[in-house]
Design a protein around this nucleic acid. Structure first.
Lengths: 182, 182
DNA sequence: GCCAGCTTGTGAAAAACTTCACAAGAAAGG
DNA sequence: CCTTTCTTGTGAAGTTTTTCACAAGCTGGC
């Protein structure tokens, strides 16, 4: 068992916050005892939609793509990278750990054939928008976008942006504030 | 010139929000016209602390480290990766684009010699906490942490976490919600 | 020089989120 | 079986953030 307070300490928040958040998905704690770790874990996996695997295509076989492909926590949580696409002829025809790198021109075909629901976009900023549009048109439901552009896509396509420069800039801002306070 | 509404559209928010946010740093728009692009850009760089370069050490020369080192937008914004550290003897002694890869045992020495203020931590989860502590003790002020652990550090050290698995999980959650609505 | 048309900056209102605080319930020990 | 101890779940209070709405102010044209 684990208490809301113990969870809060690990997550960097308060017990009340943890309880409020969890209670919005139903009440599965036990008063006086806390939350059972296994049931809680199972429930969170359910809430996050991790109880079934997701078919993922990796678009962009550059350095970021390479890092993401090797990232063990994706596979752990049921994200299956079923295809890798790139536009560089030097890379097309190669393979990463058995998964072939295919021509990005085949995007639509791959999405259809492999029932791809999520695309990880790890391409240069200039290539991102058209590729995202093609993926969306081909039926992809979610895009994890590493390109530093805000994608404009039709309603119904979920986009999650990761902008590495912004993360460093946030640090820079925080440190500058410190400096200014002195 | 650019209006708050135009900025808002690009950023995915509202004009009122943009104006409130900007006004908290002083008023540098012109009524009836909007904001001058160049002054606005300069002011934001100032606010983010990007008017001077930051000395950065990259700890972890794996795939993520490699992607980050090659990421052009860091250098663009004044983040100078002045040192690369790793624990793998096969990598130590090598170099990336002229920057030598050094033994992570030299962390403290490097931080001192190069006046490193920011560390990018791109190491496995198990190695992150001790390395973060060492960096903090050596005088590093900010850490950009890619390891999926919550670092516990003394007050005054800024930490910014990037958790790639969480980003995909957020997508998964959003798509599951859609499914549930049907 | 004045009027018309825009757009900022900002109080006030509304909404969202967090914290407080405590009744309700569960378990362990006697 | 009763009492003590602990921790959840949740209304209410408090705080923060966002939206609304409009006076203030700039610019261009006449």
């Amino acid at each position: 068992m684990v208490s809301s307070e113990a969870l809060a300490e690990r997550a960097g928040t308060t017990g009340a916050q943890v309880r409020k958040d969890l209670s919005s998905f139903g009440s599965f704690g036990t008063r006086g005892r806390g939350y059972g770790v296994d049931p809680l874990h199972a429930r969170i996996r359910e809430i996050l939609g991790l109880t079934r695997p997701w078919q993922v295509a990796l678009v962009g076989a550059g350095r970021i793509g390479s890092a993401l492909h090797a990232y063990p926590h994706f596979r752990d949580r049921g994200f299956r990278i079923v295809a890798i696409l790139d536009m560089d002829p030097a890379k097309i025809g190669g393979a990463w750990e058995g998964t072939p790198i295919r021509d990005v021109g085949e995007l639509e075909a791959v999405v259809g054939a492999e029932s791809v629901e999520i695309v990880i976009l790890a391409v240069p900023a200039s290539a991102a928008q058209p590729l995202a549009e093609r993926a969306a048109a081909a039926g992809v439901r979610g895009i994890l976008n590493f390109a530093p552009v805000r994608l404009r896509l039709p309603e119904g396509v979920e986009v999650n942006n990761v902008n590495l420069a912004v993360e460093l800039e946030a640090l820079s801002h925080a440190l500058s504030l410190e400096d200014a306070r002195r």
